[in-house]
């Protein structure tokens, strides 16, 4: 494949951001879930080998701080970018996402002959993004409440502490489920992607995948109508299939 075939998708900032989230998230999951499921042998083993429960809590909290900073930066840069630098608010959910979702389910069930035609981010990506972003904010706030219960109860009722605990612990499980099932499937195990979607690490994506997954954006980049991109893509696909056969 030549360089022409590659399309720049993510800036260095986004690549770095993903690395930070990936690492902090993993550490938080390991140190957090082993506290949630503390009676499991694996959790015990982990906690003892990380130097005991006190160290695990320290690691969890300070990693949480990095996570908080990264999340805040993400939100702030997003707001600034959209407000002052004319970034496309490409993550905003609109009506089309709902119709895309219905369309795609119909496609899976064989009631449509092609998948939903998506822009820069598909409805699945948007769903994951907002789920994780809101979840992260919940995690950060409930985590802080649990870290400083004495200070928090000076202003808020005492019940906020056990509520923050159930919130933190349940939301953690939810985010973990979304990431472990959905994100890992979509970026590693999905048969179209396997073994790994390198996009977020290299910052580029092949034109072919763009045509398949983000035809609207590709059409905007290449200044062509979407139909042309789609028909060209289907042509090559048919061609490839016949070659295989």
């Amino acid at each position: 494949m030549s360089d022409n075939n590659k399309i720049r998708r993510f800036s260095a900032f986004r690549i770095a951001e993903h690395w930070v989230f990936m690492i902090t998230f993993s550490i938080l999951v390991i140190t957090g879930l082993s506290q949630k499921f503390y009676s499991l042998d694996l959790s015990m083993w982990l906690i003892f080998h990380l130097g005991g429960i006190d160290y695990v809590r320290l690691i969890h909290r300070y990693t949480g701080i990095i996570f908080l900073i990264a999340t805040s930066m993400h939100v702030i840069t997003g707001i600034i970018g959209i407000a002052f630098r004319r970034w496309q608010p490409s993550m905003v959910i609109n009506k089309k996402d709902f119709s895309d979702a219905v369309h795609n389910i119909k496609y899976y069930l064989g009631m449509e002959d092609h998948p939903a035609i998506c822009d820069r981010y598909g409805y699945r990506q948007k769903f994951e993004y907002w789920g994780v972003l809101i979840g992260s904010i919940i995690m950060v706030f409930s985590g802080l409440i649990l870290w400083f219960p004495v200070s928090v109860t000076r202003f808020l009722p005492g019940e906020i502490i056990p509520a923050a605990k159930v919130l933190h612990t349940n939301q953690a499980l939810l985010i973990f489920a979304v990431i472990a099932l959905w994100h890992i499937y979509n970026s590693i195990f999905s048969p179209e992607i396997f073994p790994l979607d390198k996009g977020i690490f290299t910052g580029t994506i092949s034109r072919e995948r763009m045509a398949l997954e983000h035809p609207v954006e590709l059409a905007r980049i290449e200044n062509k109508p979407v139909e042309e991109i789609l028909s060209a893509h289907r042509e090559t696909e048919r061609h490839e299939n016949s070659e295989v056969n």
């Binding site: 109860t153 009722p157 906020i160 502490i161």
Partner: peptide
């Protein structure tokens, strides 16, 4: 243990 605990702090315990 929680030196500066406020009056409603015990409510944190169910």
């Amino acid at each position: 243990c929680h030196k500066d605990a406020a009056k409603n702090f015990p409510d944190a315990w169910l």
